[in-house]
Write a protein that binds this DNA or RNA. Structure first.
Length: 486
RNA sequence: GCCCCCAUCGUCUAGAGGCCUAGGACAACACCCUUUCACGGUGUAGACAGCGAUUCGAAUUCGCUUGGGGGUACCA
């Protein structure tokens, strides 16, 4: 048995997309499950669209997700370099092999000529296939075209490859997730493998790299199915073993269109900025197309990897809905150790003076505010009254204008006098008594607490009151009560 | 236009001919718990796209239709 080797090959023309992240995750899971290697390769053959910031973003996002690669541009490996632009000298050599074996030929067609052919096919309602008119150019004809200043591209000869390796023109392969897939090879045009500028096209570069990097299993989005047939032919023409392929359904936006910026976050880094925890993101995205055998949906990456079977992955597209992701993020926030949560929360609390509280108090703040939230970013609003002493009472004027409100507040002030604010216990007891006291006057316990909450936080909802009071301390608490009484 | 892929509750899915009066999760709704909001708990509602065929029997197999997605570049 040869070692399983998979790869994720993003092209740095944008930040790491959530769809790419899922493909990376499934490759990673598959590698883990098979005890194989996970390789990262940067596909930057299109210099026009690649930017360093995107390369950085891809690295950072993948690392944040915990999808550590065994080989890649930064860590190296036996098959370096792992950046396509650094491999440009490799491709012509393989193109030449194809040329020599008769599986490729030079094409001198201009964009205009190509476009005209395409238009003609469209008009005739037939599949557009390049005519192959350059395949049989004589040396004189070539010389003449070169003299005109034309530079040739190199095309792959479908017909020759089909004839050499297939009994019929049908190309089939057994997809890891979709089963048998087929395509009539006659409908594939002779595609360009080397551009006239000497750089390889995507379909050629991937094959050369994947075979040189000894990739055994290629798991990618189903938008690559049509490429797969072309690539199989190249592998065969090069005389090497064809790897296994697995095509995943796409992730769609709620309106069933491609997930794009107008739907909100699309890059992993966007989600992190919005307050999603990577654990939740990874867990959620794994559930898009894959289901745990025991029905337990909240799982760590390791647990998922142990239970992962590529053949059981759904072959249909799935829609990215926030509801479940939000719920899951909330679950992770509730379960996360407080120390860890504090680290994740700090960026969202950057505007506040955290020095005001001790480390333990900060942990307590998170403990009492984490329950209802779904996103870390909500922490900013939900903890605001603990950091900002300027309490606005506009939103709670109704609560404070209740006839019993001033009674509650003055009694609160009275009982605060001899109260110990250094721990929550006595506060709980004191306010329980206060509730009892007012209950006898016909004021519901919740109404009593509402007044106190409104006065000290300017809100009608929030964390545990006694914990808040203890955190604020006697001076600040009574100051706020007094301020609200006016 | 042509080619390919896909099709179970609103969403993610379980289901590989009888175990299905189709199960779970999120969302929705109701109730309970509660010092608020929430968390949690209990319950309700909610789907096999349509039509044919195969079979004693089909969500599960096959065909067609419809719908959705993808591809059709000297982009990746």
């Amino acid at each position: 048995m040869t070692e399983t080797r998979v790869r994720i090959a993003p092209s740095p023309s944008g930040n790491l997309h959530i769809g790419t992240a899922r493909t990376a995750l499934f490759n990673y899971l598959y590698a883990k499950k098979m005890g194989g290697k996970f390789v990262l390769r940067i596909e930057d053959t299109d210099a026009e669209r690649t930017e360093q910031q995107y390369i950085d973003n891809i690295f950072d996002s993948l690392k944040a997700l915990g999808l550590n690669w065994d080989e890649g541009p930064d860590v190296g490996g036996d098959y370096a370099p792992y950046t396509q632009s650094e491999r440009f000298d490799i491709y012509p050599e393989y193109a030449q092999k194809l040329l020599d074996a008769g599986f490729a030929y030079e094409c001198y067609c201009t964009p205009e000529e190509l476009e005209a052919e395409k238009q003609a096919s469209q008009a005739n309602k037939v599949a557009h296939v390049y005519s192959g008119k350059c395949e049989n150019l004589t040396e004189e004809e070539k010389a003449k075209l070169i003299a005109e200043g034309r530079k040739p591209a190199i095309r792959f000869s479908i017909k020759k490859a089909l004839k050499a390796f297939h009994e019929t023109s049908e190309i089939t392969f057994d997809d890891l997730v979709k089963g048998e897939l087929k395509q009539n090879g006659d409908l594939i045009g002779d595609f360009v493998i080397m551009k006239s500028n000497g750089t390889p096209t995507y379909n050629f570069a991937v094959v050369v790299d994947d075979l040189l990097m000894k990739i055994t299993d290629i798991i990618r989005g189903e938008d690559h199915i049509s490429n797969t047939f072309k690539q199989i032919l190249i592998y065969e023409a090069l005389g090497v073993e064809v790897p296994r392929f697995g095509h995943l359904g796409m992730i769609l936006a709620p309106d069933r269109s491609k997930l794009s910026k107008r739907h909100g976050a699309t890059a992993v880094s966007d989600f992190i900025k919005e307050g999603y925890l990577i654990e939740a993101l990874v867990n959620f995205v794994a559930l898009l197309g894959w289901a745990p055998s025991d029905g337990v949906e909240i799982k760590t990456v390791d647990e998922i990897a142990a239970d992962f079977r590529i053949a059981e992955v759904s072959s249909s597209n799935s829609i990215f809905e926030y509801d479940k992701l939000n719920w899951m993020n909330g679950q992770y926030i509730k379960k996360m150790p407080l120390e860890e949560l504090l680290e994740h929360a700090k960026p969202f609390l950057a505007e506040y003076n955290l020095e005001r509280y001790t480390h333990d108090e900060l942990l307590r703040i998170l403990e009492i505010t984490r329950e209802p939230i779904t996103l870390l970013s909500e922490l900013k609003y939900d903890t605001e009254y603990l950091f900002n002493d300027d309490i606005k009472l506009d939103e709670v004027s109704e609560v404070l204008s209740a006839e019993y409100a001033n009674d509650v507040l003055s009694r609160t002030l009275e009982i605060s006098e001899g109260l110990d604010f250094s721990s929550e216990e006595p506060l709980h007891e004191a306010f329980a008594n206060l509730r009892g006291e007012f209950k006898e006057k016909g004021i519901k316990p919740k109404e009593t607490m509402w007044v106190i909450r409104a006065a000290t936080t300017g809100r009608t909802r929030g964390a545990d009151m006694c914990a808040i009071i203890k955190l604020l301390g006697k001076d600040e608490f009574t100051r706020r009560i007094k301020a609200a009484m006016n």
